[in-house]
Every structure is written in C-alpha cells, then in structure tokens.
Amino acid sequence: MSLSPVEGVALAEIESDPDATMPAAKGVVGRSPGQLAWMRLRRDRTAVVSGVLLVFFLLLGLAAPLIEMAYGIGPREQFQNLLDGFGMPLGYAGGVTGDHWFGLEPNLGRDIFIRLIYGLRTSLFIAFAAALITATIGVVLGALAGYLGGWLDAVINWITDLTLAMPFLIIALALTPTITLRFYGERGQVSSAFGVGVLIAVFAIFGWTSTARLVRGQVIALREREFVEAARASGAGLGHMLFRQLLPNIWAPILVSFSLAVPQFITSEAALSFIGVGLSDETPSFGRMIYDSLDFLQTDPAYVFFPGITIFALVFAFNLFGDALRDALDPKSSR
C-alpha cells in the first residue's frame, strides 16, 4: 500500500459511493467525466477569462467581412492622401483617427485595423487547419502504432524519428520558395490561397509527431486494460476498438495538445512570414505585418505596436486556456 493516507481514503470514498438502492439524495445522477471537467473549467477564473478572449478573437476572425462592411474600409484600400511627403501617416500615433482606429501603414497607406482583422482571420485559419490536420494524422498513426504494435509500430516510430530529425526551419526555407517557383515561375503572381496552402502543408508534415507519440503512449497504456479485453472478447473489430473504446479515453490529452498546438502554429506562421518564406504581402497576416513594420520601428512605432500586442494577447490566451483545460480534464496530474 502507499504511504499516503489520503489516497487510501480517496479510494474508500469511491468504493463507498451512495448505495444504488438508496434514493439519490446527493443528486449525482449520470454526471459524465466530460461534464465534471466542464464544471471544473467553469470554476477556474483564468480559464473563463482566456476562454472569453479566445471566443472574442474567433468571432472577430469569422466576422471579418461583416466588420469590413460596418467599418467601411477594405484591407487593400490605400489612403495616400493621408500620408505626408515621406510616406508617413499624418497625425499622431501613426495616423489614428475616428476613421482609421489603429492608424495607417506608412508608404501604402492601408488601414491597419481592418488588415489586423483579416490577419487574425488568416492566422487563425492556418493555425486551426494545421492543428486539425496534425491532430488527425497524429491520432490515426499513434493509435494504430500503439494498438497493433509489431512491425507497424516499428515503421511508424521510424517515420516519426525521421521527421523529428529533419530541421524544420531549413526545410521550410528551402521548400517554400522552390514549390512556389515550380508552380508559378519567376514572375507569376502567387495567389494567397496557394501561400496559405503551402504553409499548412509544411506545418502538417512536421507537426504531427508529438501528437502521434502522445497517442501511442496512451493507447499502449490502455491496451492491456480489462475493458479493452472485454470488447475484444466480444468480437469487436479494429474500428470499434480504436474509436469506441480507446479514443474516448484519450480525448483529454488530445484536446490539450490541440489547444497548445494552435498558438504554436500562430507564432510559427508569423515567424515564417517574418523571415520571408511565408505569405506574400497580398495576404494580410500577423507575421507579414510585423515584418513590414520593423522598418518603421523608429519613425512609426504604432505600426509595430498594434499587430504585436494582438498576436501576444492571442497566443497568451491560447496557452492559458490550454493549461486550464489540462487542469480541468486531469486534476490529479497538475497539482
């Protein structure tokens, strides 16, 4: 037995749940593990605040065309008349006015607020798409490797190691321009959808390994549990085993890793755009905006400030929420 008395007592509590024949005085009817986690999440103030912030960002991104309509200015509209002779916005703080809430870009004179909204949309789309794809690849490969084991496990492990051994940044730097060149040639106008697609593909190729390892480990731990054997003894097939028996028990870590992968992809997108292999200037995105703004760090600091603070708030909220989610789903591991 363990030395901790509290563990023993906790066990005693579980074992002595209210008698089934007694009236359900405590009102614990049918509370699923998911509902319990939801309750814990709602009690956590950090989770609530970061969650609300995330929902706000998501809505902003989703509603970008609507906001454009209400705001009355598009992301590619230029307001050269509001710039001075050197291409710097007139007025204070980078040209913040009632019409242009976050001011204007130097040189091109585009509205920063609406470009931020569209940048948010692009970044969130890329991050979510990449996270979804990597999670799917990771879950499928990890679950198959963990459950079936044997040579399949060996092969998948080998591929995982291979992927991890490849330097992400160098390959991305080398690959992205090459692919673009291959499809559009030297002078072709690269469509924004293509740029986004390439980024997601690069993330998908490199991003699935951690999820696959996580899922594999979890599945191996569960594989020998008796409820899995009970399903096998009843003649359940591979699909039932993986998706009905095993996956519901590893949703929690998958969800947490998903919620922590999204901000990682947001910053990666920004980083790639920043070093110039990401999106073109055509597509509004955080990385591109920060990259462009750096030239004006001295002359127009407001241009750096707005995209910088937004990406910081977004990533911070995601990470806080991911941690809170982990605590809620698995209260024992954290404290």
Binding site: L3, P5, E15
Partner: peptide, 22 residues
C-alpha cells in the same frame, strides 16, 4: 473492510500522516 479506518489508525500510531491535511 476498505474504508473502515484500520489502516489510518496504524499510520496515526506511526505518525505518518501529513500534518497539513490531517
């Protein structure tokens, strides 16, 4: 049986309980 307090008693004699929670 489990939860009857028999093990807790012995741990108390040995002074093995966490004083913060006990």
């Amino acid at each position: 049986e489990s939860g009857s307090g028999k093990s807790v008693t012995s741990l108390a004699i040995l002074g093995l309980h966490d004083p913060k929670r006990t």
